[in-house]
Amino acid sequence: MRRITELAVILSLVLGVSVLLVLAASILLPGIEVRQLAFFYLYTTINPWFQNYTVNSPEAVTAIVWDYRGLDTLFETSVFYLALIAGLALARGLFSETPQGSFNEKTHGLTTIVKTVTRVTAPMIIAVGASIGLHGHLTPGGGFQGGATIAVIPLVFIVVYSTLFLIARGVTSNKMLVLRSIGLLGIGFTSIAAFLIGLAIGRFAYVFQNMPKPGAVVGLPADINGALISGTLWFFNLFEMIAVAAGFTIAFIILLLAGRGGSGGR
């Protein structure tokens, strides 16, 4: 019986590897043509002659993330939210919300050179992150990228200055929780914005609608005075950037506070 099992395993391995080789020859090497679905996305991402299908955004990736497959991204945002909430729930009891002692420039953190360099570069990194996030519908970038870039700053500040500095400057986990809730609420409201407008003026409109579609003429404007905002994409990027940056800041503050003056995990 055992020999038959081993033989079956070996034979199926041989057959499977040969199938893989056939696939490798035809699929795993990139071809000249792109898939039909990708062709549709690329053709309609900004196309003035297909007003019923276009997103009016030159950035195909952001258009897919927040328009073509917007509902997927909404659920992915909720998965991200739940993973973060699960982590924070695990850390409950490991830290005290208000740590003892106050921030002292002399005794806490690294040397003066490092602190000064951090002080100078921090606004630059935040500006770059905001630029990446808010230009997400025009150039490579978007809410996730900008938020991840901005989230570097609290980690650097915690390492260089200590957590007490952030708390003394008013960046507490409760305020970040409020900021992240604002971001998530904004995402929720933006996703039903066209629906609400349709409800107000008595026209038919879909949830998660961006540009006017056949049968649902309600839509958000593609540009304001000639400046392209691609309907809902700009708002989605803004709120997602806030939610991602604030969410990771909470996690870093709590992670670095864990085990310092808390109840010790018991």
């Binding site: 990736v61 993330v65 997927d72 991204t73 992915e76 998965v79 991200f80 993973a83 973060l84 699960a86 982590g87 924070l88 695990l90 850390a91 490991l94 978007g142 996730f144 990228q145 938020g147 991840a148 991602v244 969410g247 990771f248 996690a251 992670l255 864990a258 085990g259």
Partner: peptide, 19 residues
């Protein structure tokens, strides 16, 4: 794009679990 950010959130969860 979204998988990378969710991966970071999951890694944070695992770090809390390890602690």
């Amino acid at each position: 794009l979204t998988a990378v950010v969710i991966g970071l959130a999951v890694t944070l969860f695992l770090v809390f679990l390890g602690y």
